[in-house]
Amino acid sequence: MRVGVLALQGAFREHLLMLGSLGVDTLKVTRSKHLADLDALVLPGGESTAMVRIASGTDLFATLRERMAGGLPVFGTCAGLILLADRLSDDSLGGYDRLGGLDVTVARNAYGRQRESFTAPLTVRGLDEPVEGTFIRAPQILELGPDTEVLSRHDDVPVLVRQGSVWGASFHPELGTDGRIHAEFLHHLGAAV
């Protein structure tokens, strides 16, 4: 199995290391040609404003949307969740093209600035022990479509969701050394990790 990580900007290295430690092949994705032989793609944390602007004027997002329509599994964390959300609560991304594909409404930076960043133990469906979630200037999931399942909540707010094989997290499972969330995503795709 080969899993790509979008590498326009942000914490892509941490996802590559985490996926590598789980035994899958990884690939940095900066151009549409890199999408050709992937079994799944991770969209990392970082600055969504930077990512949408770097992608604009290229065929990367359009090609990726086609692959997602064809069933490519995608997991977006933090900024990656913002790229996947069908709706944003404000227009701070200035109308730049995003991906969509996850039926949620997301508010950018809704958990506050850096001094409000926090960690919290999260109960995750399918895992016996809680995961320590790291929320950094995190986006918040405000509304869910009918086909979006919640895998974890914090203070009653969904923080890990999926719609089919499109997953989104408002926290950073790539920070630290706990690979269980990545492993859950890969198990869902049928990978033996």
Binding site: A7, L8, Q9, G10, A11, F12, R13, E14, G45, G46, E47, A50, C78, A79, Q114, S117, F118, T119, T134, I136, R137, H172, L175, G176
Partner: peptide, 18 residues
């Protein structure tokens, strides 16, 4: 340890950037 993770974590998010 938590504060270190949050502080260094934001820097991770800035990477590959200007």
């Amino acid at each position: 340890e938590t504060q270190t993770l949050l502080n260094t974590g934001l820097a991770q998010m800035l990477k590959g950037g200007v």
